[in-house]
Design a protein around this nucleic acid. Structure first.
Lengths: 251, 251
DNA sequence: ATCGCTTCAAAGATATGACGTATTCAAGTG
DNA sequence: CACTTGAATACGTCATATCTTTGAAGCGAT
């Protein structure tokens, strides 16, 4: 009815995308130019682009421009109207949860505001995710979480910030995934982007604070032990701490 | 540099979209068919669609099919690859925060799971939003919130479920917006969809419970008075109650 | 001078034909 | 049996033509 069903077609596909997967082809190239320019405010809201101009400016055909614009339209970054052109929508209409939009804003002038928003979101979501994980996590997840907490500690002790960052991202992503809530799980990549951005932001001056490390182990232990309240409390301490540190850094 | 800037171009536009704005034109029509079919699982993950088949099936041209597929690709619902076709991506890759995807899933077979996910998200986010609103809300927002709480109470007393639903949606959306966090604010429409879906789900058998109504007034009063802790607590009671009721309804 | 209708043209929306290109699958070869 | 190679396939891109919508100019009447 709906085309041949290849039940295992996605098996190989899942391995092909080691994290993020971009839109490909020429429309993707166009997106990489327009998206950041709009998301960062370089092209201000209310600005009007003409499809024909974009064709010339980027030396691509109508087809390519239209498809790229369609994608931007799907994110609510722009709206295309006859006789008017392609207008940049007001920020309040943007799909601020779209991973691409988040990435573009993190990379541009909106970075502080985006970090703040995400910080508050983390404070709201991650403790709840930790509590759910303490109840619903699989045995495998608990084991891996415990393992990650250990490797986190080791990397911190050795002041190896790069691998520490990797384990930190994996830790938070795993907690979110283990919560069993698909929406929480999808924030894993976003949190990863925040942690990366934060590390880049203050140029890795400090080594990870021992207190924060201990809290991570506490979260892992609580989740492994099924202590939802404890997991939630420890995770809340982590993320509120991160938010305060962020506010301090940003003034 | 980036096209003429029409600073007030969005003023009229903002009024044109009274809630949701769809993709328009023939691609939009195609999306309304394919999106729900994929989101509901009617077209299973791993299924392969051919562009040419879609052209025939819907009687539209390549242009239209390609643009619709590009939008679906932007939501990570499908991926288009040469020589293989348009494959439906595994659920774990979908942009589950995309408002369109949420709406499609709420309308289809995935509705219970989607309601559960959103219920947990509400429990995480809305109390935090209420706390932030108590600190950052503008005077206008506080006034309107208070007013909404009153009208909510009246509608509940008169057992007018339809207008009650409207005020309830407006109330929660306002709290989220008044939090000052753009990401929270964008969950307003989603929460509205949940409340609507919930009301439709158990076929409006009960009148709103007086206890829940009182809690809404409590939230409004706490936010107006700047009592963040109280606002957060009352809101948490509301959303956890809603989640429990939901779990009871769904078994 | 203002209002309302008509007319025109700008710009996107759609359709279509042609060609490019990557990828799969299978035939062929060692 | 493993490897190479080639052809078929389905998406990717370009170019062009036509249609549709709609903002704005033009114009007449009140």
């Amino acid at each position: 009815m709906w085309g041949r069903s290849q039940g295992d077609a996605h098996r190989a596909g899942a391995a092909d995308y080691p994290g993020r997967m971009e839109i490909q082809g020429l429309p993707g190239r166009l997106l990489d130019e327009l998206g950041p320019a709009i998301a960062s405010g370089e092209i201000p809201e209310g600005a009007v682009l003409r499809g024909e101009d974009l064709e010339e400016r980027f030396g691509v055909s109508r087809t390519v421009v239209r498809e790229a614009v369609r994608i931007l339209e799907g994110m609510r970054l722009v709206a295309s109207r006859r006789r008017v052109g392609i207008t940049v929508q007001p920020k309040s209409l943007w799909d601020v949860f779209d991973p691409m939009v988040i990435r573009w804003r993190l990379a541009g002038a909106d970075r502080p505001a985006q970090l703040r928003s995400l910080g508050s979101l983390r404070v709201a979501v991650e403790p709840a995710a930790a509590a759910l994980a303490a109840r619903h996590a699989s045995d495998d997840d608990r084991r891996e979480l415990s393992s990650l907490a250990v490797e986190l500690t080791v990397a911190a002790r050795e002041a190896d910030l790069t691998t520490f960052l990797g384990y930190d991202i994996a830790f938070h992503a795993l907690v979110l995934r283990a919560s069993g809530n698909e929406m929480f799980a999808h924030l894993g990549d976003t949190v990863g982007a925040v942690l990366t951005g934060r590390t880049e932001y203050h140029l890795m001056p400090h080594q990870p604070e021992p207190y924060a490390i201990r809290l991570h182990r506490e979260v892992a232990d609580a989740i492994c032990g099924g202590d939802a309240a404890h997991a939630e409390r420890a995770m809340r301490t982590i993320v509120t701490g991160a938010l305060e540190e962020l506010n301090q850094q940003l003034g």
